[in-house]
Simulated assay, not measured.
Amino acid sequence: MFSLSLKEIRFFKLRYLLIGFIMFFVAALVFIISGLANGLSSDNASSIQNMNAHAFYLDKDADNRLDRSRFDEKVLSDIKDNKNLQTVGLQMLSLKEVNSDKKVDVSMMGIDPNSFLMPKVTEGSTIKSSKGPTIVADDSLKKQGIEIGDKLYEENSDITYTVVGFTEKQTFSHTPVAFVNKESWENLFASTQKVSYNAIVIKDANKELQEDVSSTIKDGVWVEKGDVIKGIPGYDAEQKSLFMMLAFLIVIAVFVLTAFFYIMTIQKVNQFGVLKAIGAKNNFLIGSTIIQVIILSIVSIGAAIGFAAILQAIMPKGIPFVFDFGLILIYSGVLFIVSIFGALLSSASIVKADPLQAMGRAE
């Protein structure tokens, strides 16, 4: 059975090469859109995705949006000190580079630098209250020419921040996150005399502790991290649009591959009839066709995976593209099943092949 499949592929090289190319391009397009979906997801929400947090206590009227939630500092002071709980502040700001007209948009995030909310610093040093207004920012700011030691001015609060370090994969709503300590965060509100934080973050699930927070601070609700991510402006719409494209691509792949396998099977009805006349069973012929499809699928999908991986390496860094090998394997499995399904639908022609008619045509 296997040798028959290989012999037929070698004999009809062009025919199988064309089908293989079609499978390759469909799979490559699925992987590319998947990479773009992952890239946009990371660019929009990586600061929350990578945050060591289980859930967020938000204002119940915030619609699960971290940027809309507000809790007064005086209210938060009623919460007992606990290493499993931390407050976080979030504010979209435009900072001006000192001695330059350049401005950068950032999501300022006020945290305790000694807590579980502080990400790993990949370059430079961390933020400390003793050093005055300092920032550790996502390294995407480097693309805008910002370096360690640069000073960034915020005009509303009249505060100049010094960039002391960089971290990675820390963005919010497609803007780099700039981490500041609580002292610097509270100084942002000096002019209004009203300091507020956006949420209380719990590191690990603790029902008793969460109930304690809910009873102490009213008008709030615990929101799972996944729902907070979905609440980021534009996140849900972006992901649904891209995954809808992926779904349509897979549906299109079903019809295209089924059509090609059906046409190819129809062209070989005479051959199937002759083989039946000399004793070949339907199971043998269908199995031979399935083996051909398996070989084509493995080669084509494997080549598409390699193409997507190379594309990530050569793609400009300004384009958000993330090659998630685990997710790619899932889509590969779906495409493989789709290919087998298409071949099975076309196998009805093999069963209908009439040996007598085939021998008559062969005369």
Rank of each mutant, 00 (worst) to 15 (best):
K103S: 15
M109Q: 14
D112Q: 11
S115W: 11
S115H: 10
L117V: 02
L117S: 04
M118C: 12
P119M: 06
K120G: 09
K120Y: 13
V121S: 01
T122K: 08
E123C: 01
G124A: 00
S125H: 13
T126G: 08
S129G: 09
S130E: 15
K131F: 11
K131C: 07
I135S: 04
V136P: 01
D139M: 09
S140M: 13
K142G: 03
I146S: 07
I148L: 04
I148M: 03
D150W: 02
D150I: 02
L152R: 01
E154M: 05
E154H: 12
N156C: 07
D158W: 10
Y161F: 12
Y161Q: 08
Y161E: 07
T162P: 06
T162L: 06
V164N: 04
F166T: 07
F166E: 07
T167N: 04
T167L: 01
E168I: 06
K169W: 10
Q170H: 10
T171K: 15
S173A: 11
S173P: 13
S173C: 15
H174M: 15
H174C: 14
V177E: 15
V177C: 14
V180L: 00
K182M: 06
W185N: 08
W185V: 09
F189D: 11
S191H: 14
V195S: 14
V195I: 14
Y197N: 10
I202A: 00
D204K: 01
A205E: 15
N206G: 00
N206L: 00
E211D: 15
V213Q: 13
S214G: 05
S214W: 02
S214R: 09
T216R: 08
T216M: 04
D219P: 15
D219E: 14
D219T: 14
G220R: 04
V221D: 09
G226E: 00
D227T: 13
I229N: 11
I229A: 12
G231R: 02
I232V: 14
P233Q: 13
